[in-house]
Lab assay of single mutants.
Amino acid sequence: MSIQHFRVALIPFFAAFCLPVFAHPETLVKVKDAEDQLGARVGYIELDLNSGKILESFRPEERFPMMSTFKVLLCGAVLSRVDAGQEQLGRRIHYSQNDLVEYSPVTEKHLTDGMTVRELCSAAITMSDNTAANLLLTTIGGPKELTAFLHNMGDHVTRLDRWEPELNEAIPNDERDTTMPAAMATTLRKLLTGELLTLASRQQLIDWMEADKVAGPLLRSALPAGWFIADKSGAGERGSRGIIAALGPDGKPSRIVVIYTTGSQATMDERNRQIAEIGASLIKHW
């Protein structure tokens, strides 16, 4: 067993022997301040990774656009098919120029040779490549099948209805392509620590998230040296922004954090800054 596999296998073990965790309302004060600064709703939840206990939450059962955070769930569904012998990570998928959609920095470079399922998941999570996500959605049967996968996990809230990039439209009061912070946090925890996926697939999923290259201005910008984070960000229309993450000190994750916002007129930089400040408060009061 590799060191990384050992780390993920012992996530519940280490967490069980940690000192009790206590909620700190100071972080919620910052979440509410972010709402004021952005002029928009902000949803927040913080779960203990081992027990699933909610440590703090704000608007945990209000719907927010998922945006690209759905790509972690998508690759979880792909990995479940791999575990069941219905898919192979090494299978190569070929596609054409007509398949390319807006923001496809990886797939646009491989029109000639195609990409493997493993490479597509890596591109979808680490670079948020939209064509990679659409190609992977095709392998599982489309958005409705991802929703069905989530329902089978016990998540009857999260739903995907459309493809990239239309799913980022974020129309107010439109339930399409949305989740709730509580539902997303619980589902992410199941994917990373539950028995739904094999140990190898859980490790692969967290490795992809740990290698995320496009979430630097968010929670990662607030992390002290030595902290662990595996995350996936999302951005959408109407001032929408979000991030889902597993993080913790001492090089291992111990909490799940989900943050979503929508309806702001603020710039992307300002949305990023507010999420980073929430992260800084979380870490300060850990």
Rank of each mutant, 00 (worst) to 15 (best):
K213I: 10
C75N: 15
A34K: 14
F228Y: 02
T116Q: 09
V101I: 09
P181F: 01
L282F: 06
V31W: 05
R162F: 12
E87D: 12
E102Y: 10
S201C: 13
N98S: 00
V257A: 06
R159A: 01
N130R: 12
S221L: 06
Q97V: 14
M153Q: 10
E56G: 15
S57I: 01
R159Y: 00
E169H: 06
Q204F: 01
N98H: 00
E108I: 00
S57C: 15
E164H: 02
L100S: 02
S68E: 00
L146C: 14
R118Y: 04
E270M: 15
Y260N: 12
L137Q: 14
D177A: 08
A266G: 07
L188Q: 13
D99T: 13
G248A: 03
E62W: 00
M180S: 07
A123D: 15
S96P: 05
R241N: 02
A225C: 15
T262Y: 04
K109F: 03
L160I: 04
V42K: 08
P217C: 10
I275E: 15
K32C: 11
W163S: 08
P143Y: 06
E102N: 15
G248F: 10
G76E: 15
T187W: 01
A84S: 05
S233W: 11
F228H: 02
M115C: 02
R81N: 09
G43Q: 01
T186A: 10
K284E: 09
M153T: 10
A170R: 06
E26S: 14
C121P: 09
G194P: 11
E145W: 08
K53V: 13
T261G: 10
A185W: 04
T267D: 13
D174V: 03
Q203T: 11
H151S: 08
N134E: 09
D83F: 03
V78R: 06
I125Y: 02
E166Q: 12
I243K: 01
K53I: 13
I259A: 10
P253F: 15
S233I: 14
L282N: 02
E237F: 13
L38W: 01
H110F: 00
P249S: 09
Y103L: 07
P249D: 05
P224I: 00
D36A: 09
Y44W: 06
A266R: 08
D207K: 09
L282V: 06
F149L: 09
V106Q: 15
E277C: 14
L223I: 02
G194C: 11
L219K: 12
E102I: 14
I206Y: 14
L47T: 08
A245H: 04
T267V: 13
S240H: 04
Q204V: 02
V31K: 11
P217E: 03
V72L: 05
G216H: 08
T126V: 08
N98T: 01
E46I: 10
E119I: 09
L74Q: 07
G251M: 14
H156W: 07
N173E: 10
G263M: 07
I275R: 12
R59Y: 02
I256M: 04
R202M: 03
A222E: 10
Y95N: 02
R189L: 13
R118S: 14
M180E: 04
K109T: 15
T187L: 11
N152F: 08
D99E: 12
P249Y: 11
R162N: 12
T198E: 14
S240T: 09
T107F: 15
W163P: 11
L47K: 07
E164C: 02
I45P: 00
S68V: 00
H156N: 09
N152H: 11
L192R: 13
P217M: 09
E35I: 02
L28S: 13
M184S: 08
L89T: 10
R118G: 05
R189E: 14
R159M: 00
G234F: 07
L38V: 01
A245K: 02
K190L: 15
A40F: 15
I140Q: 13
V29F: 04
V31S: 05
N50W: 04
N98V: 01
V157K: 05
D174Y: 04
A77T: 00
E270S: 13
S51I: 02
I283G: 10
V106C: 06
R238Q: 02
L55I: 15
N272A: 00
G239A: 13
M115A: 08
H110L: 02
K71C: 02
I45D: 00
A276T: 10
K190P: 15
H156E: 11
G90M: 03
G142C: 02
T27W: 00
A182T: 09
K109W: 15
D161A: 07
L247N: 14
V42D: 03
P65K: 02
T69P: 08
N98L: 00
F58G: 00
V258A: 08
Q88L: 13
E119W: 13
K144E: 07
E102K: 00
E237S: 09
E145P: 08
I125P: 00
G234I: 01
L49S: 07
N134G: 07
H110M: 01
G141F: 05
P224L: 05
E62H: 00
V258R: 05
R63Q: 08
L73G: 07
N152K: 09
K144G: 10
F70C: 05
D207T: 08
Q265A: 10
Q274K: 12
R241L: 06
Q37K: 14
Q97T: 14
D83L: 09
R41G: 07
G76T: 04
V214S: 15
A200Y: 15
E102M: 12
A200P: 13
T147Y: 05
V82E: 15
S281Y: 13
A211D: 08
G242T: 03
V257Y: 10
E87F: 11
W286F: 04
R255I: 04
T27D: 05
I256E: 09
T147C: 03
V258Q: 09
A182R: 07
Q265I: 11
F58A: 00
S264I: 11
K71W: 01
G216S: 07
L136V: 13
E210L: 11
S80W: 01
A230I: 09
L150K: 14
L136H: 14
W208M: 02
C121A: 03
H151Q: 05
I171Y: 07
G194D: 14
E175V: 14
R92A: 03
L74R: 00
T261E: 06
A133G: 04
Y44N: 00
N130T: 15
S68K: 01
P25F: 15
A185K: 14
L100E: 09
A200H: 15
A230R: 10
G216L: 05
A211P: 04
I275F: 12
T187N: 15
R189I: 09
T139F: 04
A132P: 01
G114Q: 02
L218S: 08
D48Y: 11
Y260C: 05
K30S: 15
P217L: 08
V214M: 14
G216W: 15
H285I: 03
G248N: 06
I243L: 06
H24F: 08
D155Q: 06
R273Y: 07
V31C: 11
T262R: 04
M67G: 14
A183V: 11
G76S: 06
R176N: 05
V106I: 12
L197K: 01
T139G: 05
I243D: 02
K284C: 11
L160D: 06
I259W: 12
R159G: 04
G279M: 07
D48I: 09
V78T: 06
T261F: 07
L79Q: 15
L205C: 05
T139N: 04
R238C: 06
E270Y: 02
D250I: 02
K109Y: 15
I125D: 02
N173W: 06
G114F: 14
G194R: 00
G216D: 05
E164T: 01
A245P: 05
K30G: 15
V106L: 14
H151F: 10
L205P: 09
A182N: 07
G242P: 05
G142L: 08
E169D: 02
E102F: 13
A124M: 13
L74H: 14
L135Q: 13
E62A: 00
H94P: 05
E119F: 12
N272S: 01
D129Q: 00
W208G: 03
S233M: 13
S221W: 06
I45L: 00
L111F: 14
Q274C: 14
A245G: 10
Q204G: 01
L137Y: 11
K190N: 12
G236V: 04
P105Y: 01
N272G: 00
N130K: 15
E35G: 07
E46W: 12
A266T: 04
N173R: 08
R241S: 08
R59D: 13
L79K: 15
R91P: 10
H94Y: 15
K32R: 02
L160M: 07
D33N: 04
D250F: 03
K144M: 08
F70W: 04
T198Y: 13
A211M: 15
D113V: 00
G263V: 13
G142P: 08
A123Y: 15
V117L: 01
I256L: 10
H151K: 13
A84H: 15
G85P: 15
A170D: 05
S57A: 05
N98F: 01
Q265N: 14
F149E: 11
A182L: 09
R271Y: 11
D113P: 00
D250S: 03
E62L: 00
T187I: 10
F228Q: 01
L219M: 09
G90K: 11
L223D: 01
